[in-house]
């Protein structure tokens, strides 16, 4: 991500230090991760110490300091999904992808994340891949769904 683009985002938020999180969210959503160079640029432009930016970038779940895989797999582990067996779905996914929540595989195929509630509890347990919801999952179906993503 080049500096001109970052400057544009900062401009959109009027270059105020209080909009730091909003700026980082915009960078994250365009670029899918936060490269160190981008953080440095934001630090200079907003005059916020890099230590503070680093803390924010690691404190909030929406940010990633490493590149993400082609497919983002979100497993809902909200309470409703949990009592309906979400942990078994998560186990199956870990088994199939070989990665843990928060990780991305070496081929950059999948990134696995747990989310706290997708707000479609009627469909629980729920799995979301690249924004598409797969509801009422069983362990067997999870494997079938995952096969559709290359």
């Amino acid at each position: 991500m080049d500096n001109a683009r970052i400057d544009k985002i900062i401009e959109k938020h009027h270059g105020e230090a209080s909009s730091l999180i909003q700026v980082l969210l915009d960078i994250q959503s365009e670029h899918h991760w936060l490269p160190k160079a981008a953080l440095k640029r934001v630090s200079e432009k907003l005059r916020v110490p890099l230590t503070q930016i680093q803390h924010i970038a690691t404190f909030y779940k929406a940010f990633s300091l490493v590149p993400k895989g082609r497919h983002e797999v979100h497993v809902c582990v909200g309470t409703a999904c949990h009592v309906r067996g979400a942990s078994r779905i998560l186990d199956t996914l870990q088994e199939l992808t070989g990665i843990k929540p928060g990780e991305t595989d070496l081929e950059l195929k999948f990134s696995l994340e747990t989310v706290n509630c997708l707000g479609c509890c009627a469909l629980g347990p729920v799995l979301e891949i690249d924004g598409k919801t797969h509801g009422k999952m069983t362990t067997a179906e999870t494997a079938d769904v995952l096969k559709n993503y290359q």
Partner: peptide, 27 residues
């Protein structure tokens, strides 16, 4: 972290992450 920020104003060391994964980290 606070001394470096408040007294020295150098911000060479900060916190990263949250909860039980929280750590201190130098830039």
């Amino acid at each position: 972290v606070r001394y470096c920020n408040e007294v020295k104003q150098k911000n060479a060391v900060g916190f990263v992450d949250r909860g039980s994964r929280k750590e201190i980290c130098f830039i």
